[in-house]
Design a protein around this nucleic acid. Structure first.
Lengths: 342, 342
DNA sequence: CTGAAAGCGCTAACAC
DNA sequence: GTGTTAGCGCTTTCAG
């Protein structure tokens, strides 16, 4: 032990000081790029650092500064398209602000036990938390778990007093429905996402509202679980119903893919016989057959904004107003004018 | 300052001790669930903890223990299907072993500047590193950046002396080709992934080897960038070539989707006129039209295994042999017997 | 420009 | 069972 220069993190600032024949303080100054150090001495210290393979101990730094320079990302599921993209944006924004990102996976709180799912969040070595719930928050108390850490919430309903950043689901869903309306569709079906998802609920609520506002004929709503195969099942049910809807608004692109596949399987032409709208603008959706009309979500903006806000809060800024990130309608080949005889 | 009980992480072990009228050591014992504490005193301490909103300072713990209980995940890109799934598996495995996962995004080292991309990896507050390169490692020296930290490499070629966990790309690609061969195909095209990707290279090398071994007619290889739209372009080129191949092996499912769409656009029937194989078994691939035959990769096993190995290395175990995780052939509806007249 | 001293919050080792 | 002491590696005073 101690003989192998490869052994990680051995050399302390003291060792370097001894080796270079200076005080630990001077080493610290050099390590931090402090200016008032004589070049000759700086060189000597740097040489010793290299020779000893010195690397600063961040635990000690953290202890001193009371900061971790790390933000915690709490998510129930990081493999959904949106969460994944948001996560990457957070990691990048954090990195460029000098923060690392700590992933804190929590058990899915099915059954409403959100508090239990968090575990000992407050003990994590982070300066603040971004919560990507994709689920309903039980009560404000659940957030007490964060013990006063700065907190930004994405994709969930929130008790006031916390920062919120999210896609403007209502605007997005409205633009999708309006597009179908503009094409002359009236019998429009909806494939909703899972009930536990907040964004799914926002989209289906908007769907219902638009149906009401325009006196559209009622169509039984189907529910999927975001997967393409669940969309296939929902699409089959919709296509077998009578009278058959002329358009389907699916709550995400993958379920829309399922609906399209269900149509192919029945010889129903898309978009001639059936228009299909998605939501997300997933990377593949431009290559579906036909290319999918959808609503583009700016996940990277969501992640970036959330990170900026969190870091501002860590620095002591007040909680800003809720941030709703707008979507963009993307019209491709899966939607067309409603058939005449419908 | 100090008046607001909400202020994060204020109360130290000393404050609690004072409040409860005991020594800091006793507080520490209670905090760590140490047994030899009189119940009455334990209660008193716990009450003070609650009242003061005490939460242990992990920086101090880290400093004391010399361990961070965190593993660093270094990746160039976390939004590819495989990386994302691997990442989630790592985060979960790490969590259940009491470790957090720190995301360390690095700039894509296009141009071979891998070392530069790492930045100051050795300063991160982690006990070990999992490197998901998805790219070629320039030279072993690049890894010197990790400064002796335990290191597990996923999806890359490696200089010996490091642990490697990866999908058995060769076995997977071979099984895909063998499936097409068994169906009587001989003119088989390949849509490769980007040249910078190690796994893409492994798959295309295997393709070439199988072509040679079986004296198959040469077909110009096309290269995509993993996206469905690049697969569409490659598929178009393949379908327009003469003689037309009867089968295509795409290096991932998304590009396979593009090939299928190119076929639809030309009225080429899949699988009657053209068989299409993918790779990955992406979640949507069972709902493509037709359902995609592919090779299932066990990303979660890769992530889990990598984590186990890394933690073992952190605990001082020796570097184990390379771990190759097998794949499974998944036959669905996009492949069929080669047409007679081909 | 450089060094010495003190202390961040916690726990291992040792008293009592 | 409980308290006291010391020190992890670093940086913020304060002296020179």
């Amino acid at each position: 032990m101690g003989m192998d220069p490869d052994t990680a993190g051995r050399a302390s600032i003291k060792d370097v000081a001894q080796h270079a024949g200076v005080s630990p303080q001077t080493v610290s100054r050099v390590a931090n790029g402090y200016v008032h150090v004589r070049p000759a001495m700086r060189e000597r210290v740097l040489a010793s650092m290299r020779e000893l393979g010195y690397r600063p101990n961040s635990a000690a730094r953290n202890l001193k500064s009371g900061r971790f320079r790390s933000i915690g990302l709490v998510a129930f599921n990081i493999t959904t398209l949106g969460n994944e993209r948001t996560l990457e944006a957070v990691a990048e924004a954090a990195a460029s602000a000098g923060y690392t990102t700590t992933l804190i996976p929590v058990a899915d709180p099915t059954g409403g036990n959100v508090a239990g799912a968090f575990g000992r969040l407050e003990e994590q070595a982070v300066d603040g938390i971004i919560l990507i719930m994709s689920a309903e928050l039980g009560s404000p108390d659940d957030l007490a778990l964060t013990a006063g850490l700065p907190l930004v919430i994405v994709d969930s309903d929130v008790a006031t007093g916390h920062a919120l950043v999210d896609t403007d689901q209502e605007q997005g869903a409205r633009s999708a429905m309006q597009h179908l309306l503009d094409l002359g569709h009236r019998r429009i079906a909806h494939v909703a996402g899972p009930e536990s998802s907040y964004s799914a609920r926002r989209r289906s609520e908007t769907y219902r509202r638009v149906v009401q506002e325009n006196d559209l004929p009622a169509v039984e709503m189907r529910r999927g679980n975001w997967t393409a195969s669940s969309g296939l099942a929902a699409g089959a049910a919709i296509l077998d119903s009578d009278p058959r809807p002329t358009a389907v608004f699916a709550a995400n692109d993958q379920m829309a893919l399922g609906v399209i596949t269900a149509a192919h399987a029945r010889g129903v032409r898309v978009p001639e016989d059936l228009s299909v709208m998605g939501f997300d603008d997933a990377p593949d959706s431009d290559t579906y057959w036909p290319a999918l009309s959808t609503v583009h979500q700016n996940f990277d903006v969501v992640g970036q904004r959330a990170t900026e806000i969190l870091i501002a809060m860590i620095d002591g800024d007040p909680i800003p107003e809720n941030q709703l990130i707008p979507t963009q309608l993307v019209v491709r080949d899966s939607t067309a004018a409603a058939p005449r005889d419908a």
